[in-house]
Nucleic acid binder design. Structure first.
Lengths: 157, 157
DNA sequence: CTCATTGGTCAAGCAGCTTGACCATAGAGG
DNA sequence: CCTCTATGGTCAAGCTGCTTGACCAATGAG
């Protein structure tokens, strides 16, 4: 583990301030996206579902893939998919290359919801642009990408 | 709601990339802090407890304050405090100015855990400094503070 | 003194996740 | 071709953290 808090320039209090800022930004963003999705008429969805949509959107995924992506058991992922199917956002199709597996894909309604989330995210980010300016926001994004290249994009706490 | 996605310079895909970066940074940070706290010998704590510690650390707080801070009911907050008390991290003291209320304060063990979290956060941030440099990290913090001044620092999804 | 408000707890219920068991298919090795 | 283990998926039961609802004690304004 780290043995040096002594020769570091960054104080613990600074680290906490940065951490709080990152968590506040993430929390506010999640909240705004969720509110925007609800405002566009998609109800009965929790933010956690958004992370599933993000994984399903490109080409669909198996339940096991989804479970790994969300950091939960495949049973839990399967239940989550059940819920999405029941609400009409996704459907299970036979996997083209593996008779054991089933490919979970978004329905048109699910894709519409994904677009709504994108719009809501763009709206939230626009508020950031109003404060910082476009260049600063892009710089922010680039630095965050460099700093958290493969962080878990999922409910983490 | 927003009617213009047309005259905005920021594309939806950019907004999603930024959102993903922020969430990845927050998720990674939370994970690292939690791991650091565990590595320093504090077990049986979930990240959610960290947000409670942050509110209790300065001068203690009432259960109702804590509930508002964490965005949950006071019953849930009370249960969380029960758990912290049972594990020796906090204790309930009579409130000096209100006989109805009880002031929840950290024990020495709770303060030690708070310090451990600060060290873990500093450690995680040092990894960011290694990538970006100290000035960039400070700039990152300043911009995030400007963008999310009062975001919810708590489990949000 | 009265009474609506506020801080806190007890109790029951629910939602989301976990563990454990099980079945069907896949794919590697005789 | 046949095992036999590994893998994808589901069913069932249980737990944990949170919610709602009811209630009591103390507060403070009238």
């Amino acid at each position: 583990m780290s043995q040096g808090c002594f020769n570091a320039h960054v104080q613990n209090s600074d680290a906490m301030a940065l951490s709080a800022a990152v968590l506040a930004a993430a929390g506010g963003l999640t909240q705004r996206i969720h509110e925007g999705v609800v405002a566009r008429g998609f109800e009965g969805l929790r933010p956690a579902h958004g992370f599933a949509f993000a994984r399903l959107a490109p080409d669909g995924a198996t339940v096991t893939d989804l479970a790994a992506h969300l950091g939960m058991t495949k049973q839990a992922a399967s239940q989550l998919v059940d819920e999405l199917v029941r609400k009409g956002y996704a459907e299970r199709r036979p996997h083209p290359a593996d008779a054991r597996a089933r490919l979970v894909v978004l329905t048109e309604s699910g894709r519409a919801c994904t677009r709504a989330a994108e719009e809501a995210a763009a709206e939230a980010v626009r508020a950031w642009v109003d404060v910082l300016g476009e260049g600063e926001v892009q710089a922010l994004r680039d630095r965050l990408v460099r700093v958290a290249p493969n962080g878990p994009v999922r409910p983490a706490w």
